[in-house]
Simulated assay, not measured.
Amino acid sequence: MRALLFSALLGACFTLSSCSVQATTNVSPVTPHWQGQGVIRAIDAQALVIQHDPIPALKWPAMTMPFAFSADVDLSAVKPGQPVTFTLERAGDGFRIISLTPLR
């Protein structure tokens, strides 16, 4: 009987200790980012059209496509025909540019 009671108390202690660990563990989600390089083909208020090199991490071949961009992206330093590097993140069903650097 003592062994059964001891086992029950020990099990309860492990259950409570795992709950307290879960409650105090701070898990921060990490948003994945992908790097690309290409040439700007067009700029408008909602999107940049970029002819980009392959992006192996996304299993994308080289192609030309429009990308939305975050409000933080400075478009004043780029123009059509400009080579750039860019960083992408997921945005809804697609991707958006979160940083853009002109290549000289």
Rank of each mutant, 00 (worst) to 15 (best):
S99T: 07
L88V: 02
A77D: 09
E89I: 09
L75T: 07
I98A: 02
Q51T: 00
Q82F: 08
F86A: 04
H33N: 09
R2W: 12
S7L: 14
L5R: 13
L103G: 01
P56E: 07
P83I: 04
V21N: 10
A91P: 03
I43E: 03
F6N: 15
G92V: 03
F95P: 01
A62H: 07
V84A: 00
L10R: 13
P29W: 06
G11A: 11
L5V: 12
T101C: 07
V73G: 05
L16P: 08
I97M: 06
L4C: 09
P54S: 07
I55F: 07
V73H: 04
V84Q: 05
V49K: 09
T87N: 10
H52S: 02
S76T: 15
F86R: 03
T101G: 00
T31P: 00
T87M: 08
S28D: 03
P83R: 14
G94V: 08
A23D: 06
L16F: 15
Q37I: 11
L103I: 12
M65A: 07
P102N: 08
A12Q: 10
Q35L: 09
E89V: 05
P80Y: 05
P102S: 11
K79Q: 13
R2I: 15
V78Q: 05
T25G: 04
F95V: 04
K59E: 09
P29Y: 13
I97W: 01
T24S: 13
E89D: 00
L100V: 04
P29F: 09
T25P: 00
A47R: 14
A77F: 05
A12P: 05
D44C: 06
A57L: 09
L4I: 14
Q46I: 04
P102F: 06
V39A: 07
S18Y: 12
D72T: 08
L9M: 13
K79F: 09
N26W: 10
S76V: 10
A23R: 11
P80F: 05
D74C: 08
L75Y: 10
V73L: 03
A71D: 10
F67N: 02
F69D: 01
Q22E: 11
F14H: 11
G38H: 01
P29G: 09
V49E: 06
A57G: 05
L9C: 14
G38Y: 02
P61L: 15
S18F: 14
H33L: 12
I43R: 04
L48H: 01
H52G: 00
R96K: 06
R2G: 10
D44V: 12
A23Y: 12
T31Q: 10
C13F: 15
R90K: 15
D72I: 04
G92P: 02
F69T: 02
I98T: 04
P32Y: 00
I43A: 02
